[in-house]
Design a protein around this nucleic acid. Sequence first.
DNA 1: CGATCCATTGATTCTTATCAAAATAGGTGG
DNA 2: CCACCTATTTTGATAAGAATCAATGGATCG
Lengths: 240, 240
Amino acid sequence: MKGKRLPAHGRLEPAFRRLASLVPLDEAAMEALIDAASHARQFKARSQLLAEGQPLRDPLLLLKGWAARTRVMEDGRRQIIEFVLPGDVVGHGCPTMPADAVTLVALTPVSLCIAPAPSVSSQLEAAYVHGRALNEAYLFGQIARLGRMNAHERLEDLCVELFDRLDLAGLTEKNGFAMPITQEIVADALGMTPVHVNRMVQQARQTRTLSWGGGVLTLHDADAMRRRVGRPRILPACMA
Amino acid sequence: MKGKRLPAHGRLEPAFRRLASLVPLDEAAMEALIDAASHARQFKARSQLLAEGQPLRDPLLLLKGWAARTRVMEDGRRQIIEFVLPGDVVGHGCPTMPADAVTLVALTPVSLCIAPAPSVSSQLEAAYVHGRALNEAYLFGQIARLGRMNAHERLEDLCVELFDRLDLAGLTEKNGFAMPITQEIVADALGMTPVHVNRMVQQARQTRTLSWGGGVLTLHDADAMRRRVGRPRILPACMA
DNA sequence: CGATCCATTGATTCTTATCAAAATAGGTGG
DNA sequence: CCACCTATTTTGATAAGAATCAATGGATCG
């Protein structure tokens, strides 16, 4: 397969585009990705992609749709640990260590494939490393959000994180992006009740901070918001 | 150096003992650890061990004392992302990616050394992998704690986590352990105010759930507590 | 002995959860 | 295209949980 046959960067599959944003990928990497994607599997929303504590043979690459790692308590309280977006790799950590007590669920219809082995290209490996580092940073962000921000700040902070993450995959347009999840799911991520999320959304709409409707979320001033939540944009090293 | 010269398991340096709990270590690993520890550096409480975003040449191994990764907001709010305890390795992630916006600070006087390269022994490498996996699980635990538990549960959950983690390093006695940090620091970890932490501690004392005083924390029934917080004990794979 | 840090207590306010219900949107089959 | 069903969003009223403000008491350490 020749380079000519690869799609132009602007039209890349979002998941590939995100990886290529982290580290420019060579042809070997692209071919491996395209091959892996050709064996992708589809899952319905709400399907459990990975059971709690299930050991993971191969790391998975999310191609399309949104997923989340969640933890559910006995009484039903649910916490989303992290969102998994197109281009994210899950299960890089430790194949032998199923201690996580965390489940991977599809939040929307999802397309998944096995992540090509890092050995096919050093660029691909570097992209994985950077991806892991970014995801760790997002985890830290989630902790700070839950621990030290109020409801209003949490919502803004999450919106900015989602925007920045989706932007790496080319899944944003100007100041907005497709937001395929419900307020209830946002509540599960932010450690709040759906009712309160709704109130915060109302408030943000009134202050013209954001619009959210019809499955599209728009940040009216992403930079101002980023400043307000004290979160410098998290970028991979190669773009800093 | 011969095996005979190695200290008996029961008298191992806690940091080594923790690593050895994850994966039994061979002589090469032990020697590398002992050698690394001989170049350890001491730091005072509150010293900043790693500045925000500073790239990390070599991963560090904490030998003695407690540290924490923290994030501080502009207005002074502080969140402890995770505690770093003896035997924990910091900076394994991604040497090239300083996007973290997280700082490593000593909570007590601390002794640190450069973690021996995993290449010295496959057992050591495996121990690192398991250590990373455990630490990721602790991170997830922290998120669920902050997102979905009330103040009382958070305190209990953290106590159980600390107990289990210290136990791996042999730093517990029966049901208790040395607790070298203040309620204010616990508050920073639990996303609460020091005042409220204090109230929860009072309450836990009255219900004879725990004792905390004179730098020692005792869990009167760790298993019951573990059940109450719905947290199966997190163990490395080799001990499950 | 003063100074400082930490733990503790009380009074009050603010935030967020909870409960209940109405309105809206989306999807399906007729 | 409509009627209907279900999921989601929205609104209101109230209660619980945690923060805030303000002090006091107890240690410990030069």
